[in-house]
């Protein structure tokens, strides 16, 4: 029998070690956020958002085309990814209890872990090869394919939060199933679905790997989906791995912009979630 003192010491030691885990996990976060803000802020100005990139050594310039490019890529991805992802999620919540539903759910879960670079090659094969050149469309397809599995699962979870009693109440009023699904269940889950969609958009905006060989990059403004396009993430990558000091500075500033975009979307998602829960519970 070990003495009680020893056991107590051991208990405190292990608690302290686990507490250390919290610190070790959050330290990189603190360091990262601090550096992105402190190094990125000096380079931010209005022209950083509006100007085109400048060559090495030339002062000024910005990432305006990359901001626009990311916006276009994500919007295009949403056109395909949001309806499919949300729709599949509604399917899983409403009709997902059978064998087919369980298969779809498992597939979505497993597929949501597939490396994004792999999906980039898929988009390359589906769009770049037949078109013979890189394009925003190819990148958007990759982002959309990445969106669907995660979005469908999160949509399902949030639609399932709608109490079954509401569905019953509607059916008992003589409202048909489909109308009950659309007008009662989905209407009630709307805040949650918006949340899930915003989070999916935030993830898509931060993707880099699948864009490297689909949208490539572009030094100029581009609004044509069939042309190579700049994006914030690829621009950060190119700046960061360059050997030039002033490009490094731009990488940090662009990272700050990206972080603000992603953070803002996450914040909106939280607000949407809170509003939907606040008014229903």
């Amino acid at each position: 029998m070990r003495s009680l003192l020893l056991r107590r010491i051991r208990n405190h030691l292990m608690t302290a070690l686990c507490g250390l885990g919290v610190l070790l996990a959050l330290a990189p976060l603190a360091s990262l956020l601090w550096l992105v803000v402190s190094r990125g802020l000096p380079g931010l100005s209005l022209s950083f958002f509006t100007a085109l990139p400048t060559p090495v050594g030339e002062p000024g310039g910005g990432v305006g085309n990359a901001v626009v490019g990311t916006g276009m890529l994500v919007s295009l991805a949403c056109l395909l990814g949001l309806p499919l992802g949300v729709g599949a999620g509604v399917f899983l919540a409403e009709r997902g209890d059978g064998l087919f539903g369980r298969t779809v759910r498992f597939t979505a879960e497993v597929f949501s872990g597939v490396p994004s670079i792999v999906v980039g090659i898929v988009a390359y094969g589906l769009v770049v090869v037949p078109m013979h050149h890189f394009s925003a469309l190819a990148g958007a397809l990759a982002l959309a394919l990445l969106m669907v599995p995660t979005l469908s699962r999160s949509t399902e979870e949030l639609v399932r939060l709608v109490p079954g009693s509401l569905r019953e109440a509607s059916l008992a009023l003589g409202v048909p199933q489909w109308k009950t699904s659309l007008r009662i269940v989905l209407r009630t889950a709307r805040g949650g679905i918006v949340t899930a969609a915003l989070l999916a958009v935030a993830r898509a905006a931060g993707e880099t790997a699948p864009l490297l060989f689909t949208t490539l990059n572009n030094q100029y403004w581009n609004l044509r989906p069939d042309q190579p396009t700049a994006s914030l993430t690829v621009q950060i990558f190119n700046y960061a791995i360059s050997p030039y000091e002033d490009w490094h500075q731009k990488a940090w500033s662009a990272a700050l912009v990206l972080l603000l975009v992603v953070g803002g979307l996450n914040l909106l998602a939280r607000i949407a979630m809170r509003n939907s829960l606040g008014s229903h519970r």
């Binding site: 009693s165 509401l166 019953e168 109440a169 509607s170 008992a172 003589g174 048909p176």
Partner: peptide, 20 residues
């Protein structure tokens, strides 16, 4: 069954008004 439920209404154990 939908038309039956219009003729035979139902009130449940827990109040379930539509929250939206």
């Amino acid at each position: 069954p939908v038309s039956i439920r219009r003729r035979v209404g139902m009130v449940f154990q827990r109040p379930n008004p539509f929250p939206t």
